Amino acid sequence: MPSETPQAEVGPTGCPHRSGPHSAKGSLEKGSPEDKEAKEPLWIRPDAPSRCTWQLGRPASESPHHHTAPAKSPKILPDILKKIGDTPMVRINKIGKKFGLKCELLAKCEFFNAGGSVKDRISLRMIEDAERDGTLKPGDTIIEPTSGNTGIGLALAAAVRGYRCIIVMPEKMSSEKVDVLRALGAEIVRTPTNARFDSPESHVGVAWRLKNEIPNSHILDQYRNASNPLAHYDTTADEILQQCDGKLDMLVASVGTGGTITGIARKLKEKCPGCRIIGVDPEGSILAEPEELNQTEQTTYEVEGIGYDFIPTVLDRTVVDKWFKSNDEEAFTFARMLIAQEGLLCGGSAGSTVAVAVKAAQELQEGQRCVVILPDSVRNYMTKFLSDRWMLQKGFLKEEDLTEKKPWWWHLRVQELGLSAPLTVLPTITCGHTIEILREKGFDQAPVVDEAGVILGMVTLGNMLSSLLAGKVQPSDQVGKVIYKQFKQIRLTDTLGRLSHILEMDHFALVV
């Protein structure tokens, strides 16, 4: 994948999101292997301009796509893939009243899908469409860049269908997702969380590099694949309309690839034109409109599966009536509230959605109805927002919020430890010299600072030695090549209790 991002070429006709291997024109390309080798690009942008032909009021008969309808489940399912879809609609009884809503608040519980998330729908649909058009064949390999849930859905379907599955996901995604993927037989590649989507090191860039190296491999490409919004247009939206008897006044959905909100909203605009569509985008993402909503100094966020630093091709923002931004604290607070007060075992993005819903639905009156999409299960986040310690460490809970008995030293300040200034190293000294210094002084790690004293990161003896043994660096290389740029900081005025929580999850903390 090139470091400079080429513009994806656009073909003359058809839909841009065809499933299957992508040609340089962004659509299915038939021909000899030699032709494909000559024409197939190194990668295709996940934010390529959409060429979708959908228009409100256009006859369904003019759609270029294969459409399906929700099917009634048999008493005995032939395999677990038949437990994807037909998820329950559940009334939220307490939270709406707590925040003064007059309307009825309903939750579409997508964590009841077989793999635990709304992404099971698009995973199965992308595979079925690729099999139907002859792209996927027995023994082929599926590769997908994902925040985890699409990966789980694909790995689940691949396990049943017999495909090899490789999932490329950023490091910030939970260990629970990784464990589930491994249990399903998927191979996992992790990428830096802070890598831009168009960087060769991003999950998108690495996935395309693997595709170019592995024979008979395919990126189904949830960011561009029409099967993504079509899955929701054909099934999720129809289920909502049936469950609500066609009567709903507002739908609120958090947005990642945009397939969920695009597919549902398009069908609702056709069948229930008075329904307002509300999009939820986390602070630090750029999906919301108008652009002024996205202006923030924050560039990272903890909530998973929603928000991006690019506009995915499948996201149709014209069908969203209003956007709201959400933050991590309210997302996790509301997710825990949904679990504790409503018994809905949902993930953090569901918290984002409901946090926005109780604001947006203030305009609705008694007798009206708001539906929220709860995308995934708490299963993926047992060591994250479900953990009091994690919430404390991230600053989303305060010590006084917890009532468990603490040891005698818990409320003492870090400054009472009488710490001395640490050994520091410059980023320009060599790895070999740094190892000598650390061994001589008896230290395992040291902060790396520039000549102005600005902290650049941390270097550890173990990481340097393993990097040297693996051949990633040489003793003569500058130590700046092996620094940890993500590390926890703590102030002298913070409590030892807070430091204790940090050290339970990290090997060190830097006192500043």
Rank of each mutant, 00 (worst) to 15 (best):
P2N: 13
Q7T: 12
G11H: 09
T13E: 08
C15H: 12
S23E: 12
S23T: 13
A24S: 15
G26H: 07
G26Y: 08
E29V: 13
E29S: 13
E29Y: 12
S32V: 09
E34A: 09
D35Y: 14
K36M: 12
K36R: 15
E37W: 11
E37C: 09
A38T: 14
E40V: 09
P41H: 10
I44Y: 11
R45C: 01
R45A: 13
P46S: 06
P46L: 02
P46C: 05
A48M: 09
A48V: 13
A48Y: 09
R51G: 07
Q55R: 13
S63N: 12
H65Q: 05
H65W: 03
H65D: 04
H66R: 11
H67Q: 10
H67I: 09
K72C: 08
K72R: 12
S73I: 11
I76F: 03
L77Y: 05
L77I: 05
P78C: 08
I80L: 13
I80T: 10
K83S: 10
K83V: 06
D86V: 13
P88E: 04
P88Y: 06
M89N: 00
R91I: 07
R91S: 07
K94D: 02
K94E: 11
K94T: 12
K97P: 07
K97C: 01
K98C: 05
K98Y: 04
L101P: 02
L101V: 01
L101H: 02
K102D: 05
K102R: 13
K102L: 08
E104S: 13
L105H: 00
L105S: 03
L106Q: 08
A107T: 11
A107C: 14
A107W: 02
C109E: 00
E110S: 04
G115W: 07
S117K: 05
K119G: 02
K119Q: 05
R121G: 01
R121Y: 01
R121D: 02
I122L: 05
S123G: 05
L124K: 11
R125Q: 15
R125N: 08
E128K: 08
D129F: 06
A130N: 05
A130R: 08
R132P: 08
D133Y: 09
G134C: 07
K137Y: 08
P138E: 08
I143L: 07
I143N: 00
E144H: 03
E144P: 01
T146L: 06
T146R: 06
G148S: 01
T150S: 04
T150V: 04
G151D: 03
G153F: 03
L154S: 00
A155F: 06
A158V: 05
A159V: 15
R161T: 08
R161H: 11
G162P: 12
Y163I: 03
I167L: 12
M169W: 05
M169A: 05
P170Y: 02
P170F: 03
E171H: 06
S174F: 01
E176D: 08
K177T: 00
V178F: 14
D179Y: 13
L181W: 02
L181K: 02
R182T: 09
R182C: 12
L184M: 11
L184P: 01
G185A: 08
A186P: 03
V189K: 07
V189Y: 08
R190S: 08
R190I: 01
R190Q: 06
T191P: 01
P192R: 12
P192F: 06
A195P: 03
R196Y: 11
R196P: 13
F197H: 08
S199T: 10
E201S: 15
S202W: 04
S202A: 11
A207E: 01
A207G: 04
W208C: 09
R209C: 09
L210N: 04
L210Y: 03
E213Y: 03
P215H: 10
I219C: 01
I219W: 02
D221H: 06
Y223W: 01
A226R: 10
A226Y: 09
P229F: 04
L230E: 08
L230A: 06
H232D: 03
D238C: 08
D238Q: 03
D238P: 11
L241W: 12
L241Q: 05
L241V: 15
L241E: 03
L241C: 06
Q242H: 13
Q243E: 07
C244R: 05
D245M: 08
G246E: 05
L248P: 06
L248Y: 02
D249R: 05
L251M: 12
V252R: 07
T262K: 05
G263F: 01
A265E: 07
R266F: 08
L268E: 00
K269P: 01
E270N: 04
G274S: 06
C275R: 05
C275I: 14
